[in-house]
């Protein structure tokens, strides 16, 4: 094959024989869980308490759902060579809409739709700034990131804002309830994952987003409406953040725009990157993004059960994440391989 150039390519995304891109993140997740098992012997035990499953593994899944949902939307936007910093604010706004409409006495099913509609509007706003006006994604979404929590507080003021707490059988059922032993939010998360996967992989939208993320000019000349596709990516991201907002708000029974889901955009970006996504755009890995979110949550949970002072939490998280990312880098692996084999000589 003299025709095929032989230079090594760093951006080669095709797995070589024997390694799949899922290997390193899954390995990281396994190592974290094994270490947990050694620290706490009952780590893997799953019991049934009050008609639902309990245990550390269930807990990790349970807590990972909101981050995973946000990260899935983020994966789509990152695939389009963008980023959405405003997901935390979108969660705050959808939460505020819930509290506001409950105080106004709307049917709770309508409230759910209104909260999601608000998050779609937020996504459209981001999409308009990025695809319509052409502002760089990081700046465009920074606008809503900064202002969104303020908007949430203003929404709370619509009914006086004195008592943003509420009760809702429907919403809390979706968030903290359980169905046939299984926490409902796991089922909800799985349903949303499948729905998103169908939209991305069973229609051509995923291919178009990846094409625009890989080379917008070329995609445009090939007939892909690059602007519309970019817009759609932000709307999807907004909607996924809206679902996370429903779960998080119902979990706390209150709208707290100031502190709900603080820094969740960073965890979401991290989950995408651990899952093998590149901020350079061009590829969407939905399944791997979920693994990325699980790695982050497993890490947080294990630090809690290990009895280490909470001050170590963020530092250990940073170290492990750095380690996973280094392992994923072909360059770094080659370099480490050279050092190791050099040491043996």
């Amino acid at each position: 094959m003299t025709d095929v150039a032989r230079l090594p390519r760093r951006r080669d995304r095709v797995a070589r024989p024997g390694t799949h891109r899922a290997l390193w993140p899954l390995l990281a997740l396994a190592v974290i869980l094994i270490v947990d098992g050694m620290i706490s012997p009952n780590f893997f035990a799953i019991r049934i308490v009050e008609g639902r499953l309990f245990g550390n593994l269930i807990d990790i899944l349970y807590r990972a759902v909101p981050t995973a949902l946000v990260a899935l939307g983020m994966a789509v936007v990152i695939g389009s060579k963008g980023v959405d910093l405003s997901v935390g604010s979108i969660i705050a706004i959808s939460g505020a809409v819930i509290a506001w409409r409950i105080h106004a006495g709307d049917p709770h099913f309508v409230i759910l739709l209104l909260a999601l509609a608000a998050s779609v509007v937020c996504g459209m706003w981001n999409g308009l700034l990025v695809a319509g006006i052409g502002i760089q994604p990081i700046v465009a979404t920074l606008i809503l990131m900064v202002s969104g929590r303020g908007v949430g507080m203003l929404i709370n003021l619509l009914y006086g804002g004195t008592d943003p707490s509420f009760e809702s059988a429907l919403l809390q059922g979706l968030s903290t309830g359980h169905l046939w032993l299984i926490p409902t939010r796991l089922i909800l998360g799985a349903v949303l994952f499948v729905a998103l996967w169908l939209v991305i992989r069973r229609t051509a939208l995923g291919l178009f987003i990846e094409a625009v993320g890989g080379n917008a000019a070329a995609a445009n000349l090939a007939g892909v409406n690059a602007r519309l596709v970019t817009f759609a990516a932000y709307v999807i991201c907004g909607l996924m953040a809206g679902w996370a907002g429903v779960i998080l708000t119902a979990d706390t029974h209150t709208s707290d725009p100031v502190s709900v889901a603080l820094y969740i955009e960073l965890d979401a970006i991290l989950a995408v990157v651990i899952g093998g996504g590149s901020l350079a755009g061009g590829r969407i890995y939905l399944g791997m993004t979920v693994i990325g979110a699980l790695v982050i949550q497993a890490l947080t949970t294990s630090i809690l059960i290990s009895g280490l002072p909470p001050e170590y939490n963020l530092i250990i998280k940073a170290v492990v994440v750095l380690f996973v990312l280094v392992l994923q880098s072909d360059n770094a692996r080659t370099r480490i391989g050279q050092i190791v084999s050099g040491g043996r000589r």
């Binding site: 291919l207 178009f208 094409a211 070329a218 007939g223 061009g282 590829r283």
Partner: peptide
């Protein structure tokens, strides 16, 4: 302007048809 380098040959070939 021509190709989307990260995508496969197949994905590049069907792009306009799909669009």
């Amino acid at each position: 302007e021509g190709l989307i380098g990260e995508l496969s040959i197949r994905e590049n070939i069907v792009m306009s048809m799909q669009a």
